[in-house]
Amino acid sequence: MLKITNLHAQIENEDGEAKAILKGIDLEVPAGEVHAIMGPNGAGKSTLSYVLTGREGYEVTKGQIVFNGEDVSEAEPEVRAAKGFFLSFQYPVEIPGVPVLTFLKESLNAQLRARGEDEISAPNFMKLARENAAKLGISNDMLKRPVNVGFSGGEKKRLEIFQALMLSPKFLILDETDSGLDIDAMKVVAEGVNALRAPDRGMLVITHYQRLLDHLTPDVVHILADGRIVKSGGPELARELEADGYDKYVGRAA
């Protein structure tokens, strides 16, 4: 489903200087699988999520991102979104004045139009929103409020998962979705993510800690250090990291 080959990427700082962050990533996530990317701070985890979703200022200098057989390395963010990429942001942004439901309806319809499908009717959209909100314990009031404005950290993360449920993407990237969540909130979020597991959907879970993975049970765990994947293994790798830390991988990469 997702095949990343020898991916190199750089970001530009405010002075226009380029800095290489990803230094040759090879990664394949087949449909139906959940892969975790773990790594120390500064390894390039968030950069990878932005490079995959096409954020401006994150430039692919070498290599390829192939999604369902198609090279999307140069595609605009909204084009990738319509093809099925969804990023649950580490820091979801506030959109003042735009209510959650308005935003999602516009987004969903934009994706449907881009794929040449019919737009969703207002009643069907509302029905879908109510069902998904109930799964995550999201109140009606929250759906009417501007996106993320005045939301707590936990509410923001729940709203990210709610958006994923609404947009039903083919490929989910969760960037530090567990950060800022207490145990109860994490369970709710993890249940939401688990509900999204499907044979035709891939997931990449980016995290610093193992605790979210306890709930999600990834098929493969990759360790990212200094812009490269230095080790891949089963779920036991996450537990090993939790016990021993990243020291030996940071050392090796440097």
């Binding site: 909204e78 979104a81 942004v93 735009v98 935003f103 501007p146 958006q163």
Partner: peptide, 23 residues
């Protein structure tokens, strides 16, 4: 904000319009 909105599927023009309108 613009990137967040585009990641959800809105074109840059649509995102700008929605933000300006709500403002």
């Amino acid at each position: 904000v613009l990137f967040y909105m585009r990641q959800r599927g809105l074109s840059e023009a649509e995102a700008r319009t929605l933000l300006t309108e709500s403002f």
